[in-house]
Amino acid sequence: MTTGTAGSTGSTRPTEVRGRRIGRAWGAAAVCALALAGCSARAVADGSGGTSAGTGAAVGAKPAGTTTLNPSPKPTPSATSTPLKSLRGARVNIAEGQTVGVGMPISVTFDHVIPAAERADVERQLKVTAEAEGSWSWVRDRNLLDGQRVDFRPRACWKPGTAVTVRAGAGITRHFTVGRSLVATVDVRTHTMTVEKAGSTRRVPITAGAPGMDTWNGTMVVSDKSAKVFMDSRTVGYGDSYAGYYSYAVHLTTSGTYLHQNPKANTYAGHQNVTHGCVGLATDGTAKRFYDEVIPGNVVTVVGSKDTVAAGNGYGDWNVSWEQWRAGSALS
């Protein structure tokens, strides 16, 4: 398993100490659903704890044939005309104009803790406009305190081509687009990765975490990638096992899980799991090919392993059932 947090380009030094198994996700692992037939109604997440469908009508209007999830009284104009002090220091994880993969949640983090009593008011100032059913939910981030992160996740993965607008209070607006679908499923038992990309499928030999250093089970979302990342086993409790740069690193968790090029995969991919928890790909162009095609928001699901990655360890939001996810909203 690797260390540090990769940026989108360049190389990275280790910046965190990784606790190996600090907790499980709230629910059983759930593969990010791609059956998107039920996500065709235009929706606006409007502080109801879910979404309200609309066709240009004012937020809160309920056109015929649509459903409002978890309806709640709308805040008075005086409550929304001035941004709450608690929205100061807010950051959104997606850049203006960015293209993301179908699994990317919208994550809003704060530079201070939002008290439980204020979280409903904060949610009322967070709005997502998109052709999707979704909900906000407060997530305990691995590197933050409770009350510093709230995520929006659609019920099923975003439909490719979806245009999304995010507004956080009066000061933050983001527009982004969902790109073509890429979902990779890593089976640690068969030592293979199945890559489903825009209607095509291929199988790739991999090597995953050796026994006792098992790769996280469950669904992870690519947060970023880097052509080269420095990895030091001392920062993750594995002594002097390794220290050096690894190429074509796709970042999956804040605790240090990457899918990257590993010379050991030249021998063991497809046959045996020998890594310290990362997923290794061979140096024959296999790793580079995956690196070149993957973008932030693409989905990597690991099956056949042990502990399920927690929702707040990177973007592990898909490991929470829809019912539990909605219950995590302060307005549910």
Rank of each mutant, 00 (worst) to 15 (best):
M1H: 03
G4S: 09
T5V: 14
A6E: 05
P14F: 09
T15H: 06
R18I: 05
I22L: 07
G27D: 15
G27N: 14
V31P: 04
C32I: 07
A33N: 04
A35D: 11
A35I: 14
G49R: 03
G50Q: 06
T51W: 09
S52M: 02
A53G: 13
G56D: 03
A57L: 10
G65W: 08
T76K: 07
P77M: 08
P77Q: 09
A90V: 10
V92Q: 03
I94D: 13
A95F: 06
A95L: 14
M104L: 11
I106G: 01
S107L: 06
V108Q: 14
V108E: 14
T109L: 03
D111G: 04
P115W: 09
P115I: 12
E118H: 00
A120E: 08
D121S: 09
V122F: 05
V122S: 01
Q125P: 01
Q125K: 04
L126M: 12
G134M: 03
V139F: 01
R140M: 05
N143Y: 12
F152A: 04
P154M: 10
C157K: 02
V164G: 12
A168G: 06
A168V: 12
A170C: 03
G171K: 12
G171V: 05
H175C: 12
R180M: 08
S181W: 07
A184K: 07
T185R: 06
V186M: 00
V186H: 04
R189S: 09
H191M: 07
K197T: 08
T207N: 00
A208L: 04
M213V: 00
M213G: 08
T215D: 09
N217Y: 12
N217R: 11
G218P: 05
M220S: 14
K228D: 08
V229A: 12
F230E: 11
F230D: 08
S233N: 06
R234K: 15
R234Y: 15
Y246P: 01
Y246H: 07
T253G: 06
S255V: 08
T257W: 04
A269R: 00
T275P: 08
T275S: 14
G277I: 05
V279T: 12
G280R: 13
L281W: 00
A282P: 04
D284N: 10
R289Q: 14
P296T: 14
G297N: 03
K306E: 03
V309K: 00
N313I: 05
G314P: 00
S321E: 07
E323R: 13
Q324K: 02
G328P: 05
A330C: 03
L331V: 02
L331K: 05
